[in-house]
């Protein structure tokens, strides 16, 4: 089973779920962070590997991690609604505990995880605009000069949405429309610097050169279409 952890409003994740189901191969299940956080019980047998964990959800359904072949991780934050009922002094502690648990559990899963959590975000590496721009320059993209002052943040590169191309780098492979060798190398290099297994990179061609626009660990799978789904399934089989 492929476990997709996503919020109910995460349409990209729900779309991916539908596509995986349609592929007729491995089954997929969407579970929300709230369902996991508010599980009736989370059991781990001492001495067992991390796939020995089982979540018993509110609807009495049990998810054994040994049945999970891969995880599509889209947790942005742990749910706070329940924790807010605790005394004020305990809230931060409770929130940190559940965050730490999720971080530890997802980070140690033996199956493929897209993307594994990182210290800055449960859903995978997150970098500021200026850091992303720095990576893009290092990777070999053309970049519009940016100024960063004390008064205001970095102004994002303004690109005409219609001219933006979306590519995905998954385990070092570029998925998307055909690129020349230098642009492809830049994408791969950028993904390495970004540090996630799956990165979405938006770029555009201006004056004959490929410019970096933005990047994210939270891929919009719909932009990648069937190619991306197939690549993900392939990566999971490996």
């Amino acid at each position: 089973m492929i476990l997709i952890i996503a919020e109910p409003f995460d349409m990209a994740a729900l779309w991916l779920h539908t596509r995986i189901a349609e592929s007729g191969g491995i089954p997929a299940k969407v579970v929300t962070p709230a369902q996991l956080s508010y599980a009736l019980s989370i059991t781990q047998y001492l001495g067992s590997p991390h796939d020995g964990i089982a979540f018993r959800l509110a609807n009495e359904e049990t998810i054994h991690m040994r049945d999970v072949a891969a995880v599509i991780n889209r947790i942005v934050t742990v749910p706070q609604a329940h924790i807010n009922q605790a005394p004020e002094a305990d809230r931060n502690y409770a929130s940190s505990e559940i965050h730490a648990f999720m971080l530890g559990w997802l980070g140690a899963l033996p199956c493929p995880v897209f993307n594994p959590p990182s210290p800055e975000s449960l859903s995978g590496p997150w970098h500021s605009d200026i850091a992303a721009l720095n990576f893009a320059v290092l990777a070999g993209f053309a970049c519009t000069p940016a100024t960063l002052g004390t008064g205001e943040g970095l102004k994002p590169f303004a690109a005409d949405t219609a001219s933006v191309d979306t590519h995905f780098v998954l385990d070092g492979q570029v998925i998307g429309a055909l690129l020349d060798a230098s642009a492809r190398d830049a994408m791969i290099q950028f993904a390495q610097l970004w540090g996630a297994r799956l990165v979405q990179i938006d770029s555009c061609v201006r004056e004959g050169r490929r410019h970096f626009v933005t990047a994210s660990s939270m891929a919009d799978y719909r932009r990648g279409g069937a190619l991306l789904v197939r690549a993900i399934l392939k990566a999971i089989q490996l």
Binding site: F9, V30, Y38, L57, A58, N59, H82
Partner: peptide, 17 residues
Amino acid sequence: QAQDLSQADQYSKDLKD
């Protein structure tokens, strides 16, 4: 599907509360 998941979220929270 989104609606079902939202309901599942709410149910899980209520039960936990």
